[in-house]
Amino acid sequence: MAICLGDPDHGYYTTRDPLGAAGDFTTAPEISQMFGEIVGAWLAHAWRLTGAPPGARLVELGPGRGTLAADVLRVLARIPGLEGIPVDLVETSPVLRKRQAETLAAHAGRVSWHDRLAGVPGAPLLLVANEFFDALPVRQFVRAAGAWRERVVGLDGTGALAFGIGPGQIETAFDAPEGAILEVSPAANAIAEEIGARIARNGGCAIVFDYGHRRTAPGDTLQAVRRHGYSDPLAAPGESDLTAHVDFEALAKAFRAGGAVPHGPIGQGEFLLALGLLERAARLGRGRGTAAQEALRAAVERLAGPDAMGTLFKAMAVTPADVPPPPFPNAI
């Protein structure tokens, strides 16, 4: 999975811009500016709750085309103490770095790129990760003969790629029928723990948006997306987006292991509606024609509707342990 997505010469993310109608999928920031504006307002509010630490940096993991960062910066420009905040983009794709530079040209003097979070200077973080963790590699284990044995990729009798069962095993308390699959993501957990440690040490906050499940449980969620439709994960290595649903319970444990406090997850729709999505849409639509208002209504439905992104996609916040909680109920 890591090779298919990140190989320098043939990886899916390193060789193309996958977003938009001409690509393979669309993310929330590309649907409407309202998403990024609400995220920016939440970051400013959480920054104040954490004591408005000076020297904060806006950090985005996997920043796509830079659209989310641009919308967030438009909001932060109105917040005293954040109007000139430095921007750190954690991005490994040369193609997407170029698009981000174009989108954020007005902020060129304060934007830096890094291959990993470790490259971001030590400072209070206002960190955003939108559809970042789902693209990190997972390991799968198959229930076989009473044990969890690792699922691997090999060749079948015709020389085509095929799934099989290898010798590796994992010890876990989960029991399940024969053939059930359990997914773990050491890469996601390691980055979440690093984020937690940075926030515990330097202050700030983080907010994560992704599709996934609240609790750790068996299930095969590995999927491939190509041209806005699902495809066989083994059919076109390096040509399809490979993702797996995020285990928010595991992320929360990792944030805590780093020393920070996770809040949520709650549905993306619940988050956006609670922070004023409908009110923002009404304001943007005021005085505009029918077509513009219909487009805004469609964007609200896509972002927050239960049959679109509102329920499957979830939001989780992370703060230091000694600050008032942000507007996130149902902490794990």
Score class of each variant (00 low, 15 high):
L222M: 14
A190V: 05
H263I: 01
G166N: 03
D115Y: 00
H245G: 14
I3T: 15
P262W: 05
L68I: 11
A28W: 03
L43C: 12
P8M: 09
L251K: 04
P265I: 11
G159S: 02
G204E: 05
A304H: 03
G109F: 09
Q293S: 00
Y13V: 05
L73I: 07
P186M: 06
Y12R: 02
P262M: 10
E301I: 07
C4L: 13
T221L: 02
L296W: 02
A108M: 04
G81S: 08
A187V: 15
A217L: 13
F133Y: 14
A108N: 01
L73E: 03
A236E: 14
V138P: 04
L61Q: 06
A46V: 15
H10R: 15
A135F: 03
D241L: 11
T27L: 05
I191A: 00
S93Y: 12
A299Y: 08
A315D: 10
D241V: 11
D115P: 01
G287K: 07
G166T: 05
A22H: 12
N330G: 09
G166S: 01
P80Y: 04
V184H: 05
G11I: 08
T27D: 05
E194S: 14
G264E: 10
Q33A: 15
F328I: 06
E270Q: 15
M1G: 13
D88Q: 12
I199K: 04
R214Q: 14
A118T: 15
L251Q: 03
A224T: 07
L49M: 14
V184M: 13
L273K: 14
G159P: 01
E102F: 00
P8R: 09
L126Q: 02
D71R: 04
G258V: 06
A44V: 13
V138D: 05
P54H: 11
I181G: 06
G81C: 07
V225A: 01
G204C: 05
G219K: 06
V59I: 15
L242M: 08
A274D: 15
W148H: 08
T103L: 00
G81E: 06
G164Q: 01
V300F: 01
T15K: 05
V87M: 06
G66L: 09
E150T: 09
H45L: 15
V323Y: 04
A292K: 06
Q169S: 12
V261Y: 01
Y230P: 00
I266Q: 10
P121N: 13
R198H: 09
D232M: 06
S112W: 00
T221F: 08
Y211G: 07
P324W: 10
V225I: 15
R97G: 08
E239F: 00
E102T: 14
P124Y: 12
V318M: 06
A190F: 02
A135M: 09
E131T: 10
P124A: 12
G36A: 10
L19R: 00
R57W: 00
W113S: 10
A28Q: 02
A260M: 08
G64I: 11
P329V: 08
G196C: 03
P265F: 09
G51K: 11
R297E: 13
